[in-house]
């Protein structure tokens, strides 16, 4: 597995796409911080607190980032028909699947550290600071990241499964987005339609524990570690279900 992951990292870091994505994201972050500075230059009062708080309200971006990173690692293997080189050498299919997933996971964590670190450092260096409030908001950011992380991993597992099971990358991405973005509103509508039936609490329960819903709620209940624990359970369930689905489907897959 280590050999497989080493090779995947070699490929990812030799791809312009990776570096361009990183540079674009960091540039957007710098643009956001320069927006704060612009506001401050025109009589506003943007602080490190408000800058850091922005991270907590933008946690949903992590889902899309997970998708992009998954795609970066998968690297159009169906389109370029390169999976046959791995299978023909006798690399077990579960290792191929898990190797790519773990590479995506480690790469996501690296990106998370670089992106949040860069953004917070910029805010720290350029915006007004108040040690007491800053310490508080850093705790909130820590809580939000700790809650969002397992949910991001769950969505990463979902995207990985879609990429392995659906030949077209575009279709795979659309299906993955449908699963984690479209299902919550569908559950909500179903709940409303069956409000007077025994199905209602089921839809409500499912809706409450959808990753996107949980991530959006995290900032409002910062410090509730029981909720964070629930996020880890939900993330683990998504991870287990989609990994099992993905591996079982990929095992039977005809490699062209």
């Amino acid at each position: 597995m280590m050999n497989y992951m080493r090779a995947e990292f070699y490929k990812v870091f030799h791809r312009k796409y990776t570096w361009i994505t990183l540079v674009v994201v960091l540039a957007l972050e710098a643009l956001l911080v320069s927006g704060y500075l612009f506001i401050n230059g025109h009589g506003g009062f943007e602080t490190f607190y408000s800058g850091a708080a922005m991270l907590c309200v933008m946690l949903s971006i992590g889902f899309y980032a997970a998708m992009i990173i998954c795609d970066m690692v998968f690297a159009s293997q169906y389109k370029s028909s390169t999976l046959k080189n791995e299978v023909a050498f006798g690399i077990p299919r579960h290792r191929i699947y898990l190797g790519k997933f773990l590479t995506s996971l480690v790469l996501s964590l690296l990106f998370l550290v670089v992106m949040t670190g860069f953004y917070l450092a910029l805010c720290w260096l350029t915006l007004y600071r108040d040690p007491e409030r800053d310490a508080y908001i850093m705790q909130v950011v820590g809580y939000c990241l700790a809650t969002a992380l397992p949910l991001w991993i769950g969505v990463l597992a979902c995207t990985n499964a879609c990429l392995f099971l659906i030949r077209s990358e575009l279709a795979a991405s659309i299906v993955a987005v449908c699963v984690f973005v479209m299902i919550p509103p569908v559950l909500e509508v179903c709940g409303a339609l069956f409000i007077a039936t025994p199905a209602y609490p089921v839809f409500q329960f499912l809706h409450r524990y959808m990753p996107t819903v949980m991530v959006d709620t995290a900032y409002t209940i910062a410090g509730d570690w029981a909720y964070c624990g629930q996020a880890w359970i939900v993330g683990a369930i998504w991870l287990a279900v989609f990994t099992a689905l993905g591996i079982s489907g990929f095992r039977k897959r005809e490699i062209q």
Binding site: H14, R15, S80, S81, K84, N85, A88
Partner: peptide
Amino acid sequence: IEVPSFAPFL
């Protein structure tokens, strides 16, 4: 087997 396939960007 069939047409040789590799990562196009490498």
